[in-house]
């Protein structure tokens, strides 16, 4: 036992030393009162140049849109990998649903949850939010379906192939929106320069291609995260006959 204690103490001291080195590195930088670098340009002119009042959305989907494509590819890769690793396995006891009161209660909440998710996605360019956050809330709604109604119900309502379709279509939509910019000669994933309408800053219909990219990312993220959850709780055979609307596979 003392060897593992010794190792723990050594690890703890190593972590402390690492933390001290990083702290020393931070202390060496004197804090600046003015913002330097491209951040200053973003703060001043993001609204006129891109048409979006949410500067974070402008940076994510206009100035540095290739990073967002890369991040969406990370999610795509992990979803594909998880589906590949769990392709042949089915689990016998998954979720069989909760009691009647919970089902009725959740059925009142679900429409508002979906509306909230859609609101986050669509208004990403004027208020905090965007494709990633909204897509994650959509996926949370499907997880709620699984937990409350049973995974059989969820598999019937939204088939796994539909989720694959939505995910790939969202990803392709992102790339195609970027190609429009390439075709008009303004560069890949160009926003206003590629001809997307800028609109009036602060209104709902503004921001050029940013709402479209939000929708594409929202589709991809929601379908992807939902696929991850579903791959881990696939049902082998149906054992419950209590809920209405569930057909045998």
């Amino acid at each position: 036992m003392s060897k593992s204690c010794f190792l723990r103490i050594v690890t703890f001291l190593l972590c402390l030393a690492l933390g001290w080195q990083f702290w020393k590195g931070i202390l060496a930088l004197e804090p600046t009162q003015i913002i330097i670098g491209p951040a200053a340009h973003y703060i001043e002119s993001a609204a006129e140049e891109t048409g979006a009042t949410n500067i974070v959305a402008a940076i994510l989907f206009d100035y540095r849109a290739l990073d967002t494509l890369g991040e969406a590819s990370v999610i795509y890769t992990s979803v594909c990998g998880i589906a590949m690793l769990f392709a042949k396995s089915k689990f016998k006891i998954s979720s069989t649903g909760l009691s009647f009161i919970v089902k009725r209660g959740v059925s009142f909440i679900i429409p508002f949850l979906l509306l909230y998710a859609a609101g986050i996605v669509l208004m990403g360019h004027i208020s905090p939010g965007g494709g990633f956050q909204g897509g994650a809330v959509f996926a949370t709604a499907t997880i709620l379906f699984c937990i409350v109604y049973g995974s059989g119900f969820e598999a019937v309502m939204i088939k796994p192939k539909t989720k694959e379709l939505i995910e790939s279509s969202g990803a392709l939509m992102f790339v195609l929106i970027g190609f429009v910019g390439l075709w008009t000669g303004a560069g890949f994933l160009a926003n206003i320069a590629a001809g997307y309408p800028k609109g009036e800053v602060g209104r709902f219909l503004s921001g050029g291609s940013i709402p479209l990219l939000n929708i594409a990312v929202g589709m991809k993220v929601s379908a992807g995260l939902s696929t991850i959850f579903y791959s881990m709780i696939k049902l082998l055979e149906f054992e419950v006959t209590k809920h209405p609307g569930v057909k045998n596979k």
């Binding site: 340009h41 100035y63 303004a186 560069g187 890949f188 160009a190 590629a194």
Partner: peptide, 13 residues
Amino acid sequence: LSFLGGWPAELGI
């Protein structure tokens, strides 16, 4: 060189 989105080097990728 490829300037993505048409932004110059300091602002974009």
